[in-house]
Simulated scan of single mutants.
Amino acid sequence: MHNLLYISVAIIAVAFAFLVYYLIKTLISMKKTMDNLGTTVEDLQKQIDGISQESTQLLHKTNRLADDIQQKSDALNSIFSAAKDLGDSLQRLNRSVKRVSDTVSQTADQKSEQVAQAVQWGNAAMDLWQKWKEKKRLRENKKEDKK
């Protein structure tokens, strides 16, 4: 029975040795995994820092671009305002020209009877002058025929 006890203790010792051996192997493997995980986390942190810096730079550039666009937009606003003022001035000028044209037209309508009479007198005078000129020519032709 003593032997059985020694064999049992020996089996327990061997089983404990195997257990310790595989436990050590598992812990070593776990240490390597943890080291790799630590390296990966460090690399990931470096990449995140790089992305963060690039994002910050991009944000600054975007803000500068937005400011530039705002300044140019403000400059264009003054140009559009000047164009509107010019359009308003031209509209007022057109109204003034229309009023002058209407006034001239009304005055011409009022004076048209006088103008018509003047034209009739002018036509009558032209007719008289042409008749006088023709009579003069006929007299001269008669004088020449008599000679």
Rank of each mutant, 00 (worst) to 15 (best):
L19D: 06
A124E: 09
Q117M: 03
T33H: 05
A116I: 11
V104E: 15
S55P: 02
T39D: 08
W121E: 02
R92V: 11
V41A: 14
V20L: 14
D127Y: 11
K84C: 00
M30T: 14
Q71C: 01
M34E: 09
E113D: 14
Q91E: 04
S73F: 04
V100E: 12
H60N: 04
Q71A: 14
Q70F: 08
R95T: 06
A13M: 14
A75T: 07
D74P: 00
S101Y: 07
T56Y: 00
A15I: 08
T103P: 01
K131D: 13
I69K: 09
D35K: 09
I51F: 07
T33L: 11
K111P: 01
Q57V: 01
S55A: 10
Q114N: 14
L37T: 04
R64Y: 08
V14Y: 06
S96E: 08
K25S: 13
S105P: 03
Q91W: 00
Y22R: 04
Q106L: 15
A118Q: 07
T56R: 05
I51N: 13
L59V: 03
Q106H: 12
E113F: 05
V41L: 15
Q71S: 10
I28P: 01
A82F: 05
T39L: 08
S55C: 01
V97C: 01
A116E: 05
T56K: 13
K84N: 13
M30V: 11
A15V: 14
N36F: 15
K133Q: 12
I11D: 07
F80C: 00
D43R: 02
L23R: 05
Q57Y: 08
S89Y: 09
Q117D: 07
I69E: 03
K111Y: 12
E54V: 06
L93M: 03
A118K: 09
D67R: 05
K84P: 01
G87V: 05
I11R: 01
Q106E: 15
M30W: 14
K131P: 01
F80W: 06
D68H: 03
D109V: 10
L90R: 02
Q91D: 01
L76W: 05
L37K: 02
I79N: 07
M34W: 03
K111R: 14
T40H: 03
S96M: 00
D49R: 08
L23S: 08
V14M: 03
T33G: 11
E54I: 06
K131F: 13
A15S: 11
A108C: 05
S96Y: 02
T40Y: 05
V115A: 15
L23C: 02
N94W: 04
A82G: 06
F80Y: 13
L86N: 07
G50Y: 06
Q70S: 10
T26G: 02
E134V: 07
Q71Y: 08
E54L: 10
T39V: 08
A17I: 11
V104N: 03
Y21V: 06
T26D: 10
A75K: 09
D85M: 01
A125Y: 03
